[in-house]
Design a protein around this nucleic acid. Structure first.
Lengths: 135, 135
DNA sequence: CTGTCTGCAAACAATTTGCATAGGG
DNA sequence: CCCTATGCAAATTGTTTGCAGACAG
């Protein structure tokens, strides 16, 4: 991805400096990041947190960004152009990495539907542990 | 479980009225509940939220209660005397139920360790969808 | 121009903490 | 009695909202 302006306009967004910057940062730094982290990485056109949250929410509604919430109040955000996957999270430093599992879980969704009468739409899998630096 | 006083003392707790009440409620109502929900269910010795949170945290440290955080904002708590399991959560009304999956995931933890160099300690699996009432 | 976007500050919701008092062992 | 537990209120944290001015189309 390179022409962020085009990408934004194709989704019906005005291509503002701030939105381009957020999109560029998420694209360049392809891993789940907190709002605070993104904000910190955006020193160039120093952006207000309210604006960031509004942008992230808009991106999420358009399916450009995936919001990941798993623990402790704060959410992570990552570019949404990758295959379905899961995460490992360091319980000490909160570092988070993507992992890919075999497709068994998708199938299990169907079993769950039978067992529980829920209409299953999505699922998350998180592994918690210590990252190489923290262990 | 019936003698909550004994149960508390065996874990080194003073058997206060409040702690007995929380333990009894969690034991009687065996499903994940929010702090607000527990508080609401405890009209008898009306308890302050600060106290509830302190009690829940203490119970969690002693392994009597499991704290479940999966999305935005609030946590769920459940008695910790059951086998490892996972959850289905209704995306509409937030109702949450326990489910049991085959053991494959435990094994996958080991693969993840090789792939990522993390020391895996735990994992969570959540299915999201619509419950019978909401769909 | 004209409506949408942004920054600023104040509002929020869940949870946590400080402190003086109450109560269990 | 002594120390821990509790209630109350205020503090914290991540996120959201209201509003007036700024900017893209």
């Amino acid at each position: 991805m390179k022409d962020y302006k085009k990408a934004l306009q194709s989704k019906g967004f005005k291509a503002t400096q701030g939105r381009e910057a957020v999109l560029a940062l998420l694209d360049r730094n392809r891993k789940p990041q907190t709002a605070a982290g993104i904000l910190a990485g955006m020193r160039k056109p120093k952006m207000d947190q309210a604006t960031l949250y509004r942008i992230l929410e808009a991106f999420e509604r358009k399916g450009m960004v995936k919001k990941i919430e798993f623990k402790k109040g704060y959410a992570f955000y990552e570019i949404a152009d990758q295959a379905h996957h899961h995460h490992v999270i360091c319980t000490s430093c909160n570092r988070m990495e993507d992992i890919h599992l075999p497709h068994e879980l998708e199938d299990q969704g169907r079993q769950i539907e039978k067992q529980t009468k829920f209409k299953v739409q999505d699922h998350t899998v998180e592994f918690f542990g210590l990252c190489p630096d923290c262990k």
